[in-house]
Design a protein around this nucleic acid. Structure first.
Lengths: 208, 208, 208, 208
DNA sequence: TTGTAAGCGAGACGGTACGTCCGGTCTTCCG
DNA sequence: CGGAAGACCGGACGTACCGTCTCGCTTACAA
């Protein structure tokens, strides 16, 4: 009674070929020219193979990003909260750049119309990064850099919002100074204290 | 040199029919099903007529939004800075809602790939609103509600960022409480004082 | 309420290109490789143009044969009945030869499955030839070469049957001797007398 | 050199399932919808199994007909030559009827393009029937019903031709009267005498 | 008795062609 | 002469089958 394709028999070779072709076409011709036909042709793969395993073009790109940026789940923790938040920001900016050929931007545009896709994007790309972000903030609360009643959802909006704002509104991505300003203002809005903290450690026996 | 169509002879009837059809299809079937052919058929208009006057589907939607939301250029000014900012926010949220059938979201997605379109969008939809926003902030500086050295670009990011963030990341649009929190934090980040100011007025004889 | 395409606007250029491409592909690669896609590509024509004007591949081939063999409607009439029937037979054999690349054979095969097509084939290719045949036989009756009570349907079967029989059964088409024998036997079965008749004439004032 | 499959190990169950599925699909949906995939699915058989034992769809249908109509090799011989020929004719007509769902017609159409298949069809379906026919005619010659110099190839054409003619030309199959007329004319063309002969019999003691 | 080699079901795979939809251009004819 | 109507070329869509190819599994012959 298994109507869905049998993942055990899936050809890993084809999977990789499809993802590679997707990345290549996207880089060379932009998301516009990224076509199922083009992917299949370039990957040397039948179209059915693509339709069998991915529900839409967006899902392929999602897999691609998933694989390319299967980043560390542990948040950066140098003790310098501002620097850590900054590096979280930069990671996202890097994914969204360059504007013309970033698969992520195409994915974003597509997910605005495709509810199923957008749920997947949220689950597999966004949520892990949110979790990382919140983890770092909580650590900051523990060491007293942030007040204990900070609203994490607001914090998230304040930090990441500007990136998407600028993307949507076609302003340039923030430069270094602007980035610092954004982090600083975010921290100020959250009521951060100025004190730094020692980096957290997986071996918590360190500091006296 | 009459290579470009002669705008003077343009049929206003057709223009309105196209915009109306665009709005109707978008509302009924979503941006996905909004095709030039569908618009032409629904508007009872030849495709040539559309291609003659609009460079792309996005341009039609842009015209539509331009007309629908040819909002007041004067910023709200009740004296309550937070409330005024809030109403600016709500205006944008309204344009972007509902997610499935808002022409604006389709336009946004399209402009991510189409540079020419995105420039138009920025010029005709975004910039006026930015100007309104900045006007209001400058007025706040004049009356001492904000420090004179506030970075308007950062302020813009902080206020509007969350909307686009949530749009991109497929979180719900902020509810009322959240909205208040966002405005409050923005103001705090900008170093706003708590004092209110009398509403500015074009008839300056108002307040005693 | 005209949902059907407007024949007045039809491009004769495209029509000819399609028919030419069909003939060329058929001659070069056989009916097997005759594909709508191949026709469209070779003719430099959009597939829609083909689907708009022809209901099936067979219909195109039918048009092709219609045009190629828009033969004279007047039957041959040399006065020699056997020779005239023989030339009618040869005409059909020529259309069905060579076996591998004759469009007519492909059409025949296709029409065995496609009722609508087969009706068209009958109407536009077969019936006119039957009429010609019957016309010639009736003339033979008038001049007394055939008895007046000959069953024309049986005559038709006897004369043309062997061709289709051999086609179906994959025997070689009849050679010259065989052809003579077939005609002779047909005439014998119909009870033909041996006398010849003068050729019929459009100017009936000829014979005294 | 055991590259060819080992017929000894062949699963008779599968063979029957394939033939049954082929017959069923053909009867229900016509030869058009008869695809290898459909047969495999319906028979509960892997496609490999089909391709291992049959070179083409036509070969399956050929097997099917072979099995269904593994008719007697001995010709009918009631002494009435006309009646016997008639029954030979009817047998073929039955195989080719009904037009829409007869596997034989599909096979015929396919064999027009496929040389290898057509040879097989000729060998296994046609030739035995020709032999039977010729056997009967020769017996008629022996008893003096036919002149000794009758051309059997012509006789074959005259008798069976009309069936294939009508099939190809999409006329109705001959009705009973027409059938009698065809046989009668054939006999007349062959110069048959009117006398009947006693039926040949393997048990020659029968008639007084 | 147990390998082991075949046939088997299942179905994924690279392809080809299908018939449809739409983009953008060009043409015809009406008001 | 602008505009409605819509045919045209092209290209991508998603589907159906083709014929080939593994996968495990059963099955029957041979060691």
């Amino acid at each position: 009674m298994a109507r869905t394709p049998d993942a055990a028999r899936r050809s890993e070779t084809s999977r990789q070929a499809v993802l590679a072709a997707t990345a290549a076409i996207c880089a060379e011709s932009g998301y516009q020219r990224l076509t199922i036909e083009a992917i299949a042709a370039r990957a040397g793969v039948g179209k059915m193979t693509i339709y069998r395993w991915w529900p839409s073009k967006g899902a392929i790109v999602l897999d691609l990003l998933d694989q390319a940026a299967a980043v560390g789940i542990d948040p950066p923790d140098t003790g310098d909260l501002a620097a850590d938040l900054r590096s979280l920001l930069v990671e996202v900016i890097d994914i969204l750049t360059p504007l013309d050929s970033s698969p992520a931007i195409g994915l974003l545009a597509e997910s605005l119309h495709d509810c199923a896709l957008s749920r997947q994007v949220h689950e597999r790309l966004i949520r892990p990064r949110i979790a990382t972000f919140e983890q770092r903030l909580r650590r900051a609360q523990e060491v007293g850099q942030l007040p204990p009643d900070v609203d994490l959802a607001v914090a998230l909006d304040l930090l990441y919002g500007p990136i998407y704002h600028r993307l949507a509104v076609h302003l340039d991505m923030p430069d270094d100074d602007h980035l610092d300003a954004l982090v600083a203002h975010t921290l100020r809005a959250l009521g951060a204290s100025d004190t730094a903290a020692p980096p957290s450690s997986k071996d918590p026996a360190a500091p006296a």
